[in-house]
Structure formats: C-alpha cells, structure tokens
Design a protein around this nucleic acid. Structure first.
Lengths: 237, 237
DNA sequence: GAGTGGTCTAGACCACCTG
DNA sequence: AGGTGGTCTAGACCACTCG
C-alpha cells in the first residue's frame, strides 16, 4: 500500500490524539520539532498537519501552534466520516442494533445509484442497522458493499461496531470521498416503528456513495434520521 | 488585503474557468508551465491548484494533468457556497424574490446562534428571500449580517442577485468557513404558502453560520428547502 | 520517451503570539 | 526576543499517462 512519510506521520498523530497522548486544547509539537524528531522536512510535516486539520483533529494558529480540537458535541453526520467514528466524539451513549446481515445477496432492483458492471456482477454484502443515542433510535441505515475481493466478509465481526474501521483494519480499504443527496420525507410505517415517530412525521433521508482507496469498490448507504432530538451538523473550511 | 502569489493565481484560474477560457474537460496548463509563465515555483502553483481542487473546479490526475470539472447537475447546497454561485452551474432557470429587506434592524430575540458582544451591539442587516428553480419555489431564506463597518449596505444593489458576490466585490469580504445544522421539520402555514406545499409536509431546515475574512463578522442564515423536486447534494474528499 | 502530477529535500523571510 | 506557523524558492526523484 501507500507508504509516504507524510501519511505515516499523519496516522501516528491521529492515533496519538485518539489514544489521549495529546488531549483537547493541547499543542502538538511544533513543525520544526516534528521535522527534526521524524527526520523529514517541514514541508512534509506540514503535509501531514494539513490532513489532520482537514479531518478536524487540529486547528493551526499562526504564532501559536497546532491545537488539538475539542470533541464534537453534536452529530457531524453530513460530513465525511461514519456514524461510529463521529459519534465516538460525543458524550452520549451509543448503541447499535443489527436488524439484518451482514449477508451476501443480489443488488436491489432500481438501486439508488448507478452501478458499474463489475459491481453489478459481484453482488453485494448487505447490512441493515439501527443506531441509538441514549437509548433513542436516531438513524436507520441500509448499507451495500459490492462483493469484490472481500473474502469471508459476511463472517467478519465488526471492529468496535464500526464498518469503516473494520474495512480499514481487515481489508485495507480506506474511505477517500463521499457524495450524498439529502431530502426531507414523511415517515412510512416501517420508519415510524424503527425511529419511534408517528407515521407522516418528517424524517431526514440521505443517499450516500463512498469512494474508497480501492477504486473498483464504492460503498452505498441509504440513511434515515430522526432529527427531533439531535440535529445533523457539519463544518467546512 | 491578503496578496499572496498562490491566491492571485488561484483567483485568475477560477475566473478563467468561469469565463470559459477553460471549459469542462479541458486541461489547465501543466504545473511546470504555470510556474514558468507566472514566475513562481511549482510548490506555489500546487498551492493554488489545491484550492481549485478543494473548491471543486478541477480534478488532478497523475500523469495526465488538471482537468476542469463538469458543471454540477444538482444543488450542492450543503457544501460551501451560496445559492446563486452553486445554482449558476445548473441548467435550470433560477429566480429570486426579495420578500423583505435589505433592512437594518435589531437582532431577533432568542437568535439561533449565540452572538458576540460586538455583533449584538451592531444590530443586523436583514434579508428575506425566496428562491425559485424553473418557477418552483425551492428555498426560503432568512439572512442576518451584523452591521459592522458596512456603510450603506442596505442601499447596495446585489451583484448578480448574489449576496456573497456583493460582499466580495463591494466590501472585500470573503466566506472562509461554514457551520450548519440540518433537520427535517413540518411545514407551518407560512412555509406552506411560500414553498407551495401542504401544511405538515416535510421540509428540510438548515441553520447556517458563515465565517468571513473579517474575523469580527459572521453571516447567519436560516434556510427552508422544498426537496420534493430537487435533492440537496454535497461532495467531499 | 517525453510530459505529467505526487512526494520530498534544504533552505529562506515574514507576521504573529507569548513570556 | 525567541518560537510559531504561513509563504516561497530551487531544486530532485518517482509513478503514471499517452503517443
């Protein structure tokens, strides 16, 4: 796989923040210090820090340093990452309930995104989950992963309940991009039951397509949110 | 204001794409060529192209070049830019109807974002607009701009119906970040009338806070979308 | 094989922040 | 005054694309 110096440093810093080596509000070592300790130029260090900033882990201040960002206090679900990774930054208790799968099956007819020929022929691994925050159902998720070079995927246990973490650790697949469409819809009976709202109540619906480091594999999700208690947030710069 | 070489090149390339000097599918001049013609190093050229890529104007392909992206065929409204700028990339006809303002007034009580003291004291310029695509009302917009160092803002005519373009050209204010919350809600009577849906129908609601190049000024919007005909899209990488 | 963008080096000067 | 990140220079080697 890719083994660039800036990527290695970025992964290291990310893991150190997640492990708590650097806590929120802390300053990372300066660019000069990192370039010295990791034997690379400041340019390469800055490339790593740029990713850390883009991914929201740090903010950089001129004259000050690179500051570890506070954990998010709301759902950043319209941004890049998956549910588990984003939600783990929140104080609330999170639960998952697998309603169906992972199971190998044919693609649904009239799938919501056009598929490549390779994806169509491979069939898909399907996963149907309901996500809770503080015992309240917040998101109903239908996920489809083309079965391309994913041996025994349906037998794989999810790492930390996170699909993306599992794909990264067990299959060396990283998410590199995301495309989505958002609508407000009325809850039908199935949605109403799962998300514990009345039939006809407004629901946030998202179609999502993730690009991965394996160019032949995209991951597709259809997501339904109950936004009565938690708004869905995002930040760009 | 900021006058960096990479920023100047980036503005030039952006304007050239908008003017059609480079059309969709075209290759920009190579990094080496740009560094020669603009008398800067490739590093600086790459800094400009990085912004162009982040803003979605180009895609870069190793061994190939920087390719001008096709215009978006849908509403990228959960991403960074304003309505007019995004919508201008679409084939549909767009209209605006100003329902109220721009007018100077006090901030509403219980404003949806906490305000700084300077913002509170300055009062706000208020703008209430309804946006149409192909004669259908799509978005109802309430916008609040703190009246800090904005002489005669209420008398200023909007450039191309775009608030952001007006702020950039007349007040040298650029948008640098965006923070938003998204919910699905039920249309009340006012929403129903403006967006031409039934009372109680699902509506997409967005609270938005824009950061600007003037750190003391943030722009606030409350947006309501009818997503029956047009989904709201976004893309990240 | 020539040209492209991706990675990386080894410096420099600057504006900004803090003690 | 010393350290920080922001900008910029002048190179280098590589993997990839295309004719």
């Amino acid at each position: 796989m890719e083994t660039f110096k800036y990527r290695e440093l970025q992964k290291l810093l990310k893991s150190q923040i997640i492990k708590g080596v650097y806590k929120e509000g802390d300053l990372l070592p300066s660019e000069n210090e990192l370039s010295f300790t990791h034997d690379m130029t400041r340019t390469t260090v800055r490339q790593a820090l740029l990713i850390m900033e883009k991914d929201g882990y740090i903010s950089k201040k001129k004259g000050k340093g690179s500051i570890v960002n506070p954990k998010k206090r709301r759902l950043g679900l319209l941004s890049f990452k998956g549910f588990s990774e984003v939600i783990s930054h929140i104080d609330e208790k999170v639960n998952n309930q697998v309603l169906e799968g992972p199971v190998y099956q044919n693609w649904p007819e009239d799938f919501f995104y056009p598929l490549s020929e390779a994806e169509s022929e491979a069939g898909c691994n399907f996963l149907h989950r309901l996500r809770f925050i503080n015992q309240s159902p917040i998101m109903l998720e239908y996920t489809y992963i083309p079965n391309i070079d994913l041996p025994d995927f349906t037998k794989t246990k999810l790492v930390n309940d996170s699909l993306f973490l599992t794909l990264a650790l067990n299959f060396d697949i990283e998410i590199t991009s995301m495309d989505q469409e958002v609508r407000a819809i009325k809850a039908d009976e199935e949605l109403a039951v799962h998300l514990e709202v009345g039939v006809g109540e407004p629901i946030l619906h998202v179609y999502r397509k993730y690009g991965t480091s394996r160019k032949e594999i995209n991951i597709y999700s259809s997501l339904f949110f109950n936004t009565n208690s938690y708004a869905i947030g995002s930040y760009f710069q």
